[in-house]
Nucleic acid binder design. Structure first.
Ligand code: ZN
Ligand code: ZN
Ligand code: ZN
Ligand code: ZN
Lengths: 141, 141
DNA sequence: GAGTGAACGATAATCATTCTCATTGTACTC
DNA sequence: GAGTACAATGAGAATGATTATCGTTCACTC
């Protein structure tokens, strides 16, 4: 990972700067109201500019490592990406795969949050409830 | 899904009964201290008995639909299965992929848990914190 | 013990993700 | 501003977990 030329820190170390493509991926995610898969991102972005699928995946990996985006695993197994600021969770039906968003994040109201015995820099959390939606309870015998 | 002959309920509906292979998969998961992937299960079980990979996947799907097992997505993207009774969560490093288990489940101490506006039968939840473990914070510039 | 349908096992197909490698872009030096 | 070094990129191949297919076997009923 090589830094661009733009900013420079006092300590001499070059401040990390996103590449054009990394910034473009981040911008698209910020514009979207819902999480996107890598494939969806690729499909959307290639219409505006020339970009390779591998680059999309590499950008997502870099952005995640820097704590700028989060990911969760969708029903079909693919990863869904969204800005790390969003804190949205779901009830997901094991039968039909539908996800019903929660109106707020329950983790926020935790009293003594996170007694990690080990030092760890937390970027985000995932939380999801699984079970059966009402219509599907009648189909599973 | 056809029921076996063994048990019969008072209401006339045949009580759901697991097949031999479904029960075998469930037994192995109960014996293991850690979550297992479908591939790992297959590798372990084929040593004891003749079983196909597809059957393992089908058994896992059935067991999950009946609220007997849970699954979470591991670092490498594969699904890890464990009995639904277990309530174990992790801190997972985005850089090295290591998972550090939490000593207890924070969701249990929620005050007003789960105001679902929609009727939904919850079987289990997943909760995971992502970030960087201490050694890895020095490697990401 | 024949009929019915679910369960099974072997295998092929799918598909998101990762890897490979040749090419291009960028920063830094002289 | 040409030259060097190396990160970033893109096209396509490779990977690997999961799913679909299909003929066979098993379990139950009559
Ligand atoms: Zn449903
Ligand atoms: Zn949250
Ligand atoms: Zn780490
Ligand atoms: Zn829990």
């Amino acid at each position: 990972m090589k830094s661009n030329s733009l900013p420079q820190q006092d300590n001499g170390h070059p401040m990390y700067h996103l590449t054009r493509n990394q910034q473009a991926v981040l911008d698209v995610l910020h514009q979207q109201p819902h999480p996107l898969s890598a494939q969806e991102l690729y499909g959307m972005m290639r219409q505006q500019q020339a970009i390779g699928l591998a680059t999309v995946y590499r950008a997502l990996e870099t952005l995640k490592l820097h704590g700028l985006i989060r990911s969760r695993t969708g029903t079909n197994g693919e990863s869904l990406y969204s800005p790390v600021l969003t804190d949205q969770h779901y009830l997901t039906c094991l039968q039909c795969g539908q996800s019903f968003p929660l109106d707020h994040c329950p983790v926020q109201e935790l009293k003594a949050p996170l007694q990690h015995p080990i030092p760890f820099k937390i970027y985000y959390h995932t939380l999801e409830f699984f079970g059966l939606c009402e219509p599907c309870t009648h189909q599973v015998e």
